[in-house]
Design a protein around this nucleic acid. Sequence first.
DNA 1: CGCTCCTTTCGAACACGTTCAATTTGGAGT
DNA 2: ACTCCAAATTGAACGTGTTCGAAAGGAGCG
Lengths: 221, 221
Amino acid sequence: MPLTTAKSEATRELLVSTALRLFRDVGYEKTTMRAIAAEANVSTGSAYYYFASKDDLVHELYRTLQEEHRALALPLLREGRNLGELLKVVLNTGIDVMGPYHDFGSSFISIAIKPSATTSPFGSESAVARARAISLFRHAVAMSRPQPPLAIRNDLPELLWYTYMAVTLFWVYDSSPGQTRTRRLIDQAAPLISKLVILSRLPVVRKIVEDVVQLIHGTRR
Amino acid sequence: MPLTTAKSEATRELLVSTALRLFRDVGYEKTTMRAIAAEANVSTGSAYYYFASKDDLVHELYRTLQEEHRALALPLLREGRNLGELLKVVLNTGIDVMGPYHDFGSSFISIAIKPSATTSPFGSESAVARARAISLFRHAVAMSRPQPPLAIRNDLPELLWYTYMAVTLFWVYDSSPGQTRTRRLIDQAAPLISKLVILSRLPVVRKIVEDVVQLIHGTRR
DNA sequence: CGCTCCTTTCGAACACGTTCAATTTGGAGT
DNA sequence: ACTCCAAATTGAACGTGTTCGAAAGGAGCG
């Protein structure tokens, strides 16, 4: 655990920015650790002094993207719009932020999903980052008018985050120019989910929704 | 493209079985191509004559597992039981078959999901394998009594396959002993989905379901 | 200045996945 | 029996991610 002196921190950030630039420009697999180190004028050994692995640098990209996403989405979440509209905003800004990395999205998600590392969005290690991501949806839910039924209001943000994960997966495989198909998916799915939420007031449906919520709670831990 | 002479086919299958055994016993990452080749008494070059990459051998594992799954599930799908029961059978047998590989499931899914290769379950390359997997669910749907509403009968198998993918993802991250949490998930989710299907007769719900189906069709191609 | 201790840097070395030019093998055609 | 050629096999070599022991900095202290 290196203490964060000024010089050290500068080197570290130089490595991050260099890595992210190379990832964006030449892709994940073609970006070698040696190239990153050389471009940052340090030795490969030094790069490994700051980052445990190449995947670890990808993890750094996640964090960056997540903060960008939050910074982009939050100001757009104005109170009073319905859930569908707000959901659209959050999903679309998410895709906006990831956009430049689409070509390498494949390796991206492949690394993200392996439970070995702190990288995985589902693993217990990244619980903090996940909670922060879910809080963005919680905010959207809080802003929405009318408010979703009380019965699901608490669990809805997490459910929406799962939706976001699914959309991301779709986006990775979306080879349409500019990933327009993903945009269409978002535009159609958002109001649909909004309708579903309203529908959950119906006694029959609510019963099911309760079961689903129960299911999620029961299987967690 | 090697023609399949008897000797050649034998070598190929020896490599597959050796690789699968090593994967199962020591995990994916610790199994080296050199070890596979050595264990099969061939050179590493020969291994690459038969398989384009290490991932390609994982692809072979998929095929094997899928056929095992089918062989195990089909005889158990007896006509007349309700959809929930049949779904339970298909999902549980799926987990049964994957069981021995759970420890290496992480790398497993990580490789599966990268869109680069023929390996990916979503990529166009593995469309055939995917269709075959979906057909298993189509069979389950066909066997179920009462029959699901006509409106969704056609698309239900695909939707169930997505469910199966989700369950698999859950299973990969399930670190409970013997993956009992996944079993519980299946036991609870199957009747739930069955109920949802029945519910789709309701005019309000059907409207939503139609939208969802529309969504899936619209985004595909 | 010299000494100590920790941080930081280095680059050679290792194991791995993969490639490839060269070689061997084995069967079909004559 | 001989030739020929594609199929099959080999092992050295390349580039990669990663490790590691050793060296260089540099801050505090006498």
